[in-house]
Design a protein around this nucleic acid. Structure first.
Lengths: 339, 339
DNA sequence: TTGTATGCGTTATCAA
DNA sequence: TTGATAACGCATACAA
């Protein structure tokens, strides 16, 4: 029982052929005669040969690895999409390299460099908004990047996602048309998050469209978490002219709001309506079940992987794809009571 | 504006030193004179030099990459742990390679090979149970592996996790001592899941300990999902001698059970108690809030990353670590009603 | 169809 | 402190 890891050379020696033949046999089996192929594979099995990764990378200039940088895997919308992304990548023979930014642009930048340094053949990024210099760096290094979770027709960067503004706009129109005039939004931090910003804009646009003064929107920014949503909702409850409908930037915040309402003895939706965004599991399990916007996270991940694989393997150009969202009315929204 | 990616050579030429000096300068800055160091770094910046990954791997025989294979990122217990794992890995200069097995041993095996082939310096695996041949393969390839999410004192494989049997045992004892005699367990598939198996065993042990006939446990196996939990609960409800306490292998199944109970008009916990496992977000958001076992997922991920980093960088031996779980009593458990 | 020979971009050994 | 040079293990152009 030898303790050395076998190389191409060893296989070639054992099969009594040249290293070139072994290499060919492994990469293009049909370019080799039946007889030698059998000999080679026998040797490969006998020795337990596995191609050396570094050498392969060096020779082919390709790692067959694709990097993804997401805010955090703890947010199930990213976990879900990433899972689908990875599964599809596997089908095409790629492996997933993962990093997270904790929603911080500086960390994201660092991670982008790290993944490029690690030889990622391409990158998946969340949202458009980032330093121009980053895009230049990617270009210089020859590493293509695809944007996901957002679609903005006015940007020419390739992206696979949905129109955050439009989705929230549609939901807001519906809710306003149910008689709600005093609205609130509990939003994720909009600073460096173009998705949050777009959702905010969607509500503003809907208000203008329906002749409400957009300046009257009660806007609260907070960070991600159930607790944070609850705290923000508490603040809203203490307002003099309490809103009748509270939009939330995501389902997690909405569930926090729901919890806070229950604690304060406020009936949802009779006294106040609450709206989420994403339609993660929490939304249907919440009590009452949450009205929200359904986003095709898995589909996004899958399509992103396909596009990237197609780009690397066939040189196909990255094309933007716009996916549709869907309004899901469950139990947390009711017509506004007038008084 | 040149379009070529610069190499060590280019930097050396530009700084007017040898490639050896540049390499040294980058890897051991203090082994080089102040003057040349400045010259070299100036050249590096000017050219935008980034070390070639493949070449580096080939020369050092190290990718600084660690692979993790988990059942699925969609299960938030893994997403959470993986996030912590990745964050800690980053601190030590490692990148995370991710693959998922969908709870299938054959896919896991394939993925293990894929990650080794991708040059992972070490692997993180979930649970002990797998083909012996896999461990032999890992050994032959010289790739160390650490097991997480389970701790079994009778195994000598290094692992960082908790005692699934013990945790469920403690919970069951508590519940039995509240007067429950007719118990049920809605379990994840135990076939190739040692954690599920251990939790099952924990209940059996508790029953024996409290002089209940373990054969009376109503045991249902199902796959992961809210819907699946609900269906299993429906079955239990239709039983002639209905159990008074229903344990669930995880919180997701428990939340499904809760939903089914609500639909059937059964009061929880007055008429039936429901117990989860994991304490994910769902548990506190569920209504009524779920009684469950809290597991330190993040801590596991963090410690696993530390151990692996220490192993690769300093050759430290992998040591098993046993973490504690905690019983969380919320609102879904009440003393048994006798009749 | 198969073999020979070279290059890929680092690191590391040894000498200077 | 620095430089010349030999690996590292594979893919591939070219020759046979």
């Amino acid at each position: 029982m030898s303790n050395e890891i076998p190389t191409l050379h060893d296989v070639a020696f054992s099969a009594n052929v040249s290293t070139a033949t072994v290499s060919r046999c492994l990469n293009f089996p049909d370019k080799v005669s039946e007889k030698t192929r059998r000999r080679v594979f026998a040797a490969v099995n006998k020795l337990g040969y596995l191609p050396n990764f570094g050498a392969k990378v060096m020779a082919t200039k390709r790692t067959n690895t694709i990097g993804a940088i997401i805010p955090t895997m703890e947010n199930s919308i990213f976990a879900r999409g990433l899972q689908a992304f990875q599964e599809e990548l596997l089908v095409h023979g790629f492996t997933l390299l993962v990093a997270s930014s904790s929603y911080r642009p500086d960390i994201e930048e660092e991670q982008i460099k790290a993944l490029v340094a690690r030889g990622a053949d391409a990158l998946l990024l969340i949202g458009y908004e980032r330093n121009l210099e980053v895009y230049r760096f990617l270009q210089n290094q020859g590493v293509p990047a695809l944007t996901a979770w957002a679609f903005n027709s006015s940007s020419e960067r390739p992206s696979i996602g949905f129109d955050n503004r439009e989705a929230m706009y549609q939901m807001a129109i519906k809710v306003i048309d149910m008689g709600h005039k005093r609205l609130a939004l509990i939003s994720a931090q909009t600073g460096s998050n173009d998705r949050a910003k777009a959702r905010y804009q969607g509500i503003l646009d809907a208000m203008s469209e329906r002749a409400l003064d957009a300046a009257d929107l009660c806007f609260i920014e907070t960070s991600y978490g159930i607790e944070e949503g609850a705290l923000a909702f508490d603040k809203i409850l203490s307002l003099p002219n309490r809103p009748t409908a509270v939009f939330c930037g995501n389902d997690v915040l909405a569930v926090g709001a729901l919890r806070s309402a229950r604690k304060s003895g406020i009936n949802v939706p009779e006294e106040i309506s609450i709206i989420g965004f994403d339609d993660i599991e929490l939304a249907q399990v919440a009590y009452p079940a949450l009205t929200t916007v359904q986003v095709p996270h898995r589909e996004m991940g899958r399509l992103a992987a396909q596009a990237l694989a197609d780009l690397i393997k066939n040189g196909a150009e990255l094309k933007s794809i716009r996916l549709e969202t869907k309004l899901i009315f469950r139990e947390t929204v009711a017509p506004a009571v007038d008084y």
